[in-house]
């Protein structure tokens, strides 16, 4: 059974030009113990999906979905208290900007210790509990690859480097031993060695603790090396999702193909100095969204029918929404 299952998630934002669908019938499902990648350009709504899952949307956003379940329980029907309980125990989120996601007036150690759930601490006097909290916190900080725990834990967020902050955010996310970790671009701005450390840590946690990970990002190389499956998002629409091997070998949606082609690492046959294939144009702004399939104006396979939103079709566990998919003969 899917751990997190989202079907037809629509998120509307109230702007001066009326309600705009920032997410249009997005689908996403994360199975137990898998690493799922959520890929898309900047502005395609990746972070919005993360916000929608973690809850607490600002009042100018409206969320509707056919299905949004956590282990079969309907997230949309829950009250704030039940939702909070799930966020506290089961789902952890690492946000994009680590230093902005940490309270500037509290030391990092205090923030980490505050997140330790009370059932991990055991019984005892409050100083014993405090000591236990500290022990758990230090252990975690070491686990994510910060060696100088004393220095980091007594520092304020503005005093540390952003990659340390990113690792620290991961430690904070792992403290409640969640079932699902949502990592919103966790390796952004990191140097290569640190990045590898973090990715290895994710992989290890996934294998030893069966931690499911929703890896949001655009680092295709990292994603293809660690993920089991991938969901591709374009402009708030999920265009294709499925096992990563299958998507790489035989992408059905023109956008997925363009995305993969734009990364030279995947092109073994690419001759030197040849131009990279890119789609014409840029991702449309939210004020000028095309109707139907939002890739339409940029798609070289687009035809008249593309002004209608294509339905989701599937071949085994490979989902795509395109009227004229690649590798088929109906066009």
């Amino acid at each position: 059974m899917a751990l997190l299952d989202i079907k037809n998630l629509t998120l509307e934002i109230d702007t001066d030009n009326g309600w705009i669908k920032a997410l249009d019938k997005a689908n996403l499902s994360v199975r137990e113990g898998e690493i799922q990648a959520l890929v898309g350009e900047s502005g395609s709504g990746k972070s919005l999906i993360v916000r929608a899952i973690s809850g607490g949307l600002p009042p100018q956003m409206r969320l509707t979905a056919d299905r949004m379940t956590w282990r079969g329980a309907n997230l949309l029907a829950m009250n704030a208290e039940q939702r909070r309980e799930i966020m506290r125990r089961d789902i952890a989120v690492v946000y994009q900007d680590p230093l902005a996601s940490l309270d500037p007036s509290v030391t990092l150690g205090e923030q980490l210790e505050e997140s330790v759930p009370y059932e991990f601490v055991g019984k005892g006097w409050f100083w014993e509990k405090q000591k236990e909290r500290k022990r758990i916190a230090i252990e975690l900080v070491h686990k994510v690859g910060i060696k100088d725990h004393a220095g980091v834990m007594s520092a304020y967020p503005h005093q540390i480097a952003s990659d340390i902050g990113q690792k620290f955010m991961i430690a904070m996310a792992l403290v409640s031993q969640p079932a699902l970790l949502i990592a919103d671009d966790p390796t952004r701005g990191m140097e290569a060695t640190t990045k590898v450390q973090i990715l290895k840590l994710f992989k290890r946690l996934n294998q030893t603790k069966r931690l499911s990970i929703l890896f949001v990002g655009h680092d295709l190389l990292a994603i293809s090396s660690m993920s089991d499956s991938m969901t591709v998002l374009y402009c708030g629409q999920t265009v294709e999702s499925g096992p990563i091997k299958q998507l790489q070998k035989r992408p059905l949606h023109p956008y997925t193909k363009a995305l993969l082609d734009s990364a030279p690492s995947f092109r073994a046959d690419l001759p030197p100095k040849s131009p990279l294939v890119t789609l014409p144009g840029t991702i449309p702004t939210l004020q000028h969204l095309p109707i139907g399939c939002r890739l339409g104006p940029r798609c070289h396979r687009a035809q008249k029918t593309c002004v209608q939103t294509p339905a989701v079709r599937k071949i085994h566990d490979h989902f795509y929404s395109c009227h004229y998919p690649l590798h088929t003969n109906n066009s």
């Binding site: 973690s54 600002p58 966020m87 506290r88 952890a92 940490l102 309270d103």
Partner: peptide, 15 residues
């Protein structure tokens, strides 16, 4: 209350 660290704290499940 609009700052990212408040949103992050909410997503950690603090009341």
């Amino acid at each position: 209350m609009r700052k990212p660290y408040i949103i992050a704290a909410q997503s950690r499940g603090l009341s």
